[in-house]
Every structure is written in structure tokens, then in C-alpha cells.
């Protein structure tokens, strides 16, 4: 392996960027491809597929065997609001293999008694996210209904290019939210990326069912990121 490939790979992983080491097993040459870089040629399709499913694999191309070692940062789900839905979502995310953290400045909601071992921050999203910045491999679900709490992290998530941004609230609530965020200067195409009503349309009624719908939508977004 080229020492530079190793160095650049570690840099990408440390910066939570997805990267694939492409090794030609026939001649031993390797190169690094970072997600989002344009790739030409026979490997292009296999690379984009590998970025999405996260699976390392060997492929044949042009008479050579290649190994694609895929390094996708572990996705993080950031939930704004320590509400009933979040309690269920924390359990479902864990089962699904996604790391999850909950942020809510309302100390009556954000208690270890309600959330057990879930990573919990009883502080304002502004303060928490300053130390734990969002990135493209984060999903953000804002579920407090309270603009004072939800608006800032929603804007931050859109700016960071989170693979999923969802907001709880009725169509009317959401329309008002979009007006406020627009006034903050967030462009329309970014606002269009907010999933609201939140969650897949499965007729979810209980907090637990809504959590399932949100988790399903997050998985769908993660496995189709960059596909529009």
C-alpha cells in the first residue's frame, strides 16, 4: 500500500468522510476515492454502489481483480427533544445499529431515568452542537415542536449537509417553520430537503409507531444518499 494512500485514508476517516481504497490485486497498485469525487471508467458503478451499501468487495474489471475496501463513517442520529417518540426511537436505533444521541434543554424531559443508557445532553442544541458538529453522516430529527429549540439545529443540519433532516409537526406548523427559516436566509432548495411530516407514511399513530416510521425514513435516506 502506498503510504500516502494510508495517510489520506486515515485523514478521511478521522474527518468522517466516506472513502474506498481501490487495490488492484493483480499488480498491487492502490488509490483512494473519497465519496463525492467523480470517477470515470469501468469501476465507477461498482464504487457508487459500494459507497451506498457500505460493503467491501472484490470485482473484476478490464482483466484485473480489484478489491474495494469501503470505509463509511458510522451514521449518527441526533434527536432534538427528549420526548416520548425519542424514547422509542432510541431503542429502535440501537436495534438497527445506528448510534443515537438526544438533546433537550428542558431538564424535566432529558433525564437518565427516562433514557437509560442513551447518550443524553440536557442543554441547548446551540451549545451541544458547537462541540459535536453535525456532518454528512448525521441524521437530525427535531421533535419538540418548539421553534426555540428546533429551529437552530434544523438550520445547522441543512448547512452541514446531513443525509437526513426531519421535523415533527402539522403541515401548518411546518409552513410557519419554513417561513421562519427562510427569513434566516436558508435557501428554498435546502428547505425542500426537510422531511415533514416526519417519518415514512405508514399510518403511524402511537409514539412508538412514529419512531418506527422515522427510523425507516432515516434508513431509506442513508442507503440512497446522494441519489437525489
Amino acid at each position: 500500500m502506498d503510504p500516502l494512500t494510508l495517510k489520506n485514508l486515515n485523514e478521511a476517516r478521522n474527518a468522517r468522510k466516506a472513502a474506498i481504497v481501490v487495490t488492484n490485486l493483480t499488480d498491487g497498485q492502490d488509490r483512494l476515492v473519497i465519496e463525492g469525487e467523480s470517477v470515470e471508467g469501468e469501476l465507477a458503478e461498482a464504487l457508487s454502489k459500494a459507497f451506498l451499501n457500505g460493503k467491501s468487495t472484490t470485482i473484476e474489471a478490464g482483466g484485473c481483480e480489484y478489491f474495494l475496501n469501503v470505509h463509511v463513517p458510522p451514521p449518527r442520529i441526533v434527536v432534538i427533544g427528549a420526548v416520548h417518540i425519542s424514547q422509542a426511537l432510541a431503542l429502535i436505533a440501537k436495534t438497527s445499529g445506528y448510534a443515537l444521541e438526544v438533546i433537550d434543554p428542558r431538564t424535566a424531559f432529558a433525564t437518565p431515568e427516562r433514557f437509560g443508557e442513551t447518550e443524553l445532553f440536557a442543554d441547548w442544541p446551540e451549545d451541544v452542537l458547537a462541540n459535536r458538529p453535525l456532518d454528512a453522516y448525521c441524521a437530525l430529527a427535531a421533535v419538540t415542536h418548539d421553534p426555540k429549540i428546533d429551529d437552530y439545529p434544523l438550520a445547522a443540519a441543512l448547512e452541514a449537509g446531513c443525509f437526513y433532516v426531519g421535523a415533527l409537526g402539522s403541515r401548518k406548523t411546518h409552513a410557519k417553520r419554513l417561513d421562519r427559516l427562510k427569513e434566516e436566509g436558508i435557501p428554498q432548495e435546502a428547505l425542500d430537503c426537510i422531511h415533514s411530516p416526519i417519518g415514512l407514511d405508514i399510518g403511524a399513530a402511537s409514539p412508538q409507531e412514529i419512531a418506527v416510521a422515522i427510523m425507516g425514513e432515516i434508513i431509506q435516506a442513508f442507503r440512497s444518499r446522494g441519489l437525489g
Partner: peptide, 17 residues
């Protein structure tokens, strides 16, 4: 040196990669 699992068949103990 770096050793990497590049393919597995059946129930291998460590995943590819």
C-alpha cells in the same frame, strides 16, 4: 505490512475489509 480479508465463503469469523 497490512493484511486484509478480501473475500470470505461460508461463515467466516471476520468480515471482508
Amino acid at each position: 505490512a497490512i493484511a486484509t480479508v478480501v473475500s470470505t465463503w461460508g461463515s467466516a469469523p471476520r468480515p471482508v475489509g
